[in-house]
Structure formats: structure tokens, C-alpha cells
């Protein structure tokens, strides 16, 4: 349709471009095509970009604004709070909860990821042997990950209950003394870690399993013909080949675990005292979890969390560049 109209409009330009016969008009037509496809491309993209601006950038902006002003409950509604600069940040760094919250966050994230990844990878290698029923069992392994976090958290709270929990009943049955999982400062972080590791294993299993499937089978065959043992095959071949998949799994695990809120809040509310308070929990305690919400401090804590996540993402990007450069 369009090409039928084109020659007429194109003619004068053909004459003008006589010095460079036939190249000029074609390029201008291509430019016009590119411009119109750019319009189309951005037309399809515009809703999401607007959405990102309205529902990510603006809340984020509001959050930064909260953190650099001193809002009270009333000024939170009215919106005119005095500018405070970094005072809120200084206050949270000096707060006695900050150090334990940061430490708990670090322990929670690294222990969770270490166990989730090691167990997930082990299971992936195991299921990769494709025995009878392996597909069905692998599917069942997804269940903990698909359950609402609130459901898993309340189930674990009841299982870890000091007096009537099945875990303590088991410990007693094998001759150990029961543990106050959720009510003793020594164990509360361990208790939420157990639940969180349990929830994260399926995710690691699925990704690492698909990573394993991406390795051509002849690689393993060649290695076993060369006489490599199962252990050697894993450390010398499987593990190095899985490095890119592992890196992305660990990064995603890091980002998700840093944000964990539901599990800890349901199981311990960050307590007793601050023994299982992470930065995410602390931020919630300061804002919605308090009768006199201090949204400014809560927002500052939340922004610290974002900075940590972004720093690790940048470390990941750099590490990947270095890997690719090798």
C-alpha cells in the first residue's frame, strides 16, 4: 500500500540526490522506517515505563523524601515536615539496634544462601541422575517455595513451639534436651534461618538443575572414559561449568534474602529483644509495627537496605565482566 504512494513523493528527492545515485532515497526511506518502528516500539513500551515511574520511582522518591525530613504522624499526613538532611541517617547509625540488626542481616543472608545453595546444588546433581520417579519428586520439591510465606512461617512456628512442637518432641525422643527455638535469644535467629533455608532450597534446586541440563552429556562421558571419579567429575567439570548459573543464583538469592520480612515477622517479630531483628524487620518495627510510627527513621533504614542490594549487584556485574574478559 505504502510503496504505491511512495514513487511520487520520492521523485524530486531522486533528482536532488543525483550525485549519489539511488543511495540517498533508500537511506531516507530506511530512516523513516526506523523512526516509525521506534514509535511503535516505544508505544508498546510506554505503559510499563509510565508504570515504573508512577509506582516505583515515585514511591522511592517519597521514601527518600521521608528519610531526609523529620516527619511526625501529623506531618506525614499533611506533608510539610522540616528538612533534616542526614540527621535521620546519623540517628539510625547511632541507634543501639543498628549494630545487631546489621549483624543479624549479614548472618541471616549469608547462612541462608550458603545452605540453600549447597543443598540445592547437591539435590540438583542427585536428581540429574534421572532415576525412576525423579521427575515427580523434583516437582514435589517445589511445594515449599510455592506456599504462601505466611503459611510456611506459621507452620514452622508451631513445629518449633517450645512445649508442644514436633521438633522438640523429636529431640527428646533421641535423648537431647528441648530448645526454646523462638523464645530464647540464642536460638531465635537459628529458628528463622531453618525456615528460610527450607523455603529457598527449591528455587536453588530448579535453577541449578536447569544449569546441569545445559551441560552437554558427552562432557561427562568423556570424563568418565578418562577415568575421572564421580567426585573429581563434580569438582573439575560440573562445578566450573556451572559457574555462570551459580553466580546469578547467588545474586538473586542475595537480593531476595535481604528483603525477607514475612517469615521473621510471623515467627519472632525480630525478638526476643533484637536477637532476630534484621534491617527489614527494624524498618517495619519503626514504621507500621509501632504505635507511634517514625516513618523518617524507617525510610532511612529501608534506603540503607537498597544501597546494600545495589552495591552487591554492582560487584556481581563487575565480577561477570572480569569473567567474560578472561
Amino acid at each position: 500500500m505504502r510503496s504505491a504512494v511512495r514513487p511520487r513523493g520520492g521523485q524530486p528527492r531522486d533528482e536532488a540526490a543525483a550525485a549519489a545515485p539511488s543511495r540517498g532515497p533508500r537511506r531516507s526511506r530506511r530512516e523513516r522506517v526506523i523512526r516509525s518502528t521506534q514509535w511503535t516500539a516505544w508505544g508498546f513500551l510506554a505503559p510499563v515505563v509510565a508504570y515504573l515511574g508512577l509506582f516505583y520511582a515515585y514511591p522511592l522518591y517519597r521514601n527518600i523524601d521521608l528519610s531526609i525530613r523529620s516527619y511526625t504522624v501529623t506531618s506525614f499526613v499533611s506533608g510539610n515536615a522540616p528538612f533534616a538532611g542526614f540527621a535521620n541517617y546519623r540517628a539510625i547509625f547511632a541507634n543501639p539496634t543498628f549494630a545487631p540488626a546489621l549483624l543479624n542481616t549479614a548472618v541471616f543472608v549469608f547462612v541462608s544462601i550458603a545452605f540453600q545453595f549447597a543443598i540445592g546444588l547437591g539435590l540438583a546433581v542427585f536428581f540429574h541422575r534421572n532415576f525412576r520417579l525423579s521427575g515427580l519428586l523434583r516437582a514435589l520439591f517445589l511445594v515449599p517455595w510455592l506456599l504462601p510465606l505466611l503459611v510456611s512461617a506459621s507452620t514452622w512456628s508451631w513445629m518449633l513451639n517450645s512445649d508442644s512442637g514436633v521438633v522438640n518432641a523429636f529431640l527428646q525422643a533421641v535423648g537431647l534436651s528441648p530448645i526454646d527455638w523462638l523464645t530464647s535469644p540464642t536460638w531465635s535467629l537459628g529458628a528463622v534461618l531453618i525456615a528460610n533455608i527450607w523455603i529457598g532450597i527449591p528455587f536453588n534446586l530448579v535453577i541449578m538443575y536447569s544449569g546441569l541440563q545445559g551441560i552437554p552429556p558427552d562432557v561427562f562421558e568423556a570424563a568418565s572414559i578418562d577415568g575421572a571419579s564421580g567426585w573429581q567429575r563434580f569438582w573439575r567439570i560440573t562445578f566450573p561449568l556451572l559457574r555462570p548459573v551459580s553466580a546469578i543464583t547467588l545474586l538473586l538469592g542475595f537480593v531476595y534474602t535481604l528483603k525477607v520480612f514475612d517469615i521473621i515477622w510471623i515467627m519472632t517479630r525480630g525478638g526476643p529483644a533484637t536477637s532476630s531483628t534484621t534491617l527489614a524487620i527494624w524498618s517495619y518495627q519503626l514504621s507500621f509495627g509501632s504505635l507511634l510510627p517514625d516513618f523518617s527513621s524507617a525510610a532511612a533504614v529501608g534506603n540503607v537496605l537498597i544501597v546494600i542490594a545495589v552495591v552487591f549487584a554492582l560487584v556481581y556485574v563487575r565480577a561477570r565482566h572480569r569473567l567474560e574478559a578472561l
Binding site: 514511591p59 517519597r62 521514601n63 521521608l66 528483603k259 507500621f288 534506603n303
Partner: peptide
């Protein structure tokens, strides 16, 4: 995807 839900919640609440 890296923004913690608690941060989003506070922003949404204010809005």
C-alpha cells in the same frame, strides 16, 4: 526488583 517491599509499602502508604 531489588527494592525491599517494606520500602515500597511506606511509599505507597504515603501516597
Amino acid at each position: 526488583q531489588m527494592i525491599p517491599a517494606i520500602v515500597m509499602a511506606m511509599g505507597f502508604y504515603a501516597i
